[in-house]
Simulated assay, not measured.
Amino acid sequence: MGQGRPPTMRDVAEHAGVSISTVSRVVNAEKYVDPVTRATVEASVAALGFLRNESARTLRPGQRTATIALVVEDLTNPFSAELAHGVEIVAAASGYVVLLLSTGRDALGDRDQVREKEIVGELLRRRVDGVLMVPGDDDAEGRYAALAERAPIVFVDRLPKGVRGDVVLLDNAGGSRRLTQLLLDRGHRRIAYVGGDRGSGTGAKRYSGFRAALRAAGVREERDLLRFNQHSSEEARTATQDLLALPEPPTAVFCDNNRMTVGALLAVHRARADVVIGGFDAVELAEVLVDRVALATYDPVDVGRQAARLLVERMGGSEAPPRRTTVPVVLAEFGD
């Protein structure tokens, strides 16, 4: 079996010392296979890591599915919808259909690892021509590496630890630093931070940019103003309410994604507090807000387009070294 090539029925047949037709009957759970032979074939399937290609059952040899998979974490997040739109623009022009899948979140609000494992398993069985993945932070179980052995893959928003591959990133650290500097330039010194997992790739970079701006300005980071591990707008709203109730509340709140920004805006608006919100990611209808908000924004559609272009090149046979594309972030201010 060639290095990097997924095992075939022929490989299983040679390993088990049986015919390809016998392997086919076993993997398709057909009757009238000798129990000992079935056990031998199943042992070879397990040893080689063979996976039946579901799509291949309906395709002629050499025929492709003209399908690419886009795997995101949260379909309800506007980022995912706009990202998918950008991917579809390029995919349609190149003759591909996009299969959109979501890992979702578990009961604790974290990325649903069980669902992601199911998705990766299904993609391994089906002959998609390529995969676009908004991944987790590492590849501890080798899921992404397994995908990469069977189809070209491009990562979006982060590159998992321990994985080499094409990736389209946002300028997370730089954008956060510039946004925090904007708040500092407006005279704010008690700046709170409301965010998700500061240990994640994206969260860590945005938090590092926030801290770097404070250090450069000689402003001490106040531990009582930090609120991490918020997973929804509602949790962010509650965290911001808590900050506003402090004896010395913040005059500005940095939010590390659009869900945090929406929650913080709700809390500030309901409390009628004189607090500026600084948020990473675009927020719909920000220009009509009466509360003051500054945003570090980018074009998710362009992120999707760039990632899809890289994938199309890989599916076309490109063997260039792994490429890293960074999408710029711009600042915008809204409200009074």
Rank of each mutant, 00 (worst) to 15 (best):
G130S: 12
V327H: 09
H15T: 15
R178Y: 00
R237F: 02
H85T: 04
L295M: 06
V131H: 10
E54R: 06
T37C: 13
D171M: 08
R5Q: 03
G49R: 10
Q306A: 08
G199D: 11
L170H: 09
V36G: 07
R60F: 00
G304F: 08
K117F: 11
A264S: 12
E284F: 15
H15V: 13
V45M: 02
G199A: 14
L51S: 14
P135N: 09
D157G: 02
R223A: 14
V303R: 09
L266M: 10
F254A: 14
L51V: 15
V219M: 09
P321K: 06
Q230H: 07
D242Q: 13
V120G: 01
T37Q: 12
L108D: 09
L99Q: 15
A271E: 07
T8N: 12
V268L: 09
D138W: 00
A213K: 13
A271Q: 10
R150Q: 01
V87Y: 06
A286S: 15
L289M: 10
Q306S: 02
V168Y: 05
L99P: 14
L266R: 11
V87F: 03
L265P: 02
V36E: 12
V303S: 08
K161P: 02
A69G: 05
V154G: 12
V33H: 15
M315T: 12
T251H: 09
V275L: 04
G195K: 06
R186K: 06
A146V: 08
G201Y: 11
T238W: 03
L214E: 08
G201V: 09
A91F: 00
R57D: 05
A66I: 00
A332C: 01
T180Q: 04
L310I: 11
A16L: 15
F334M: 02
V168N: 11
E313D: 15
R220Y: 01
D106A: 10
G203R: 01
V194A: 09
A296R: 05
A192M: 03
R237P: 01
T238Y: 00
L59V: 06
A286Q: 04
E30T: 15
D106I: 15
I20F: 04
H85M: 02
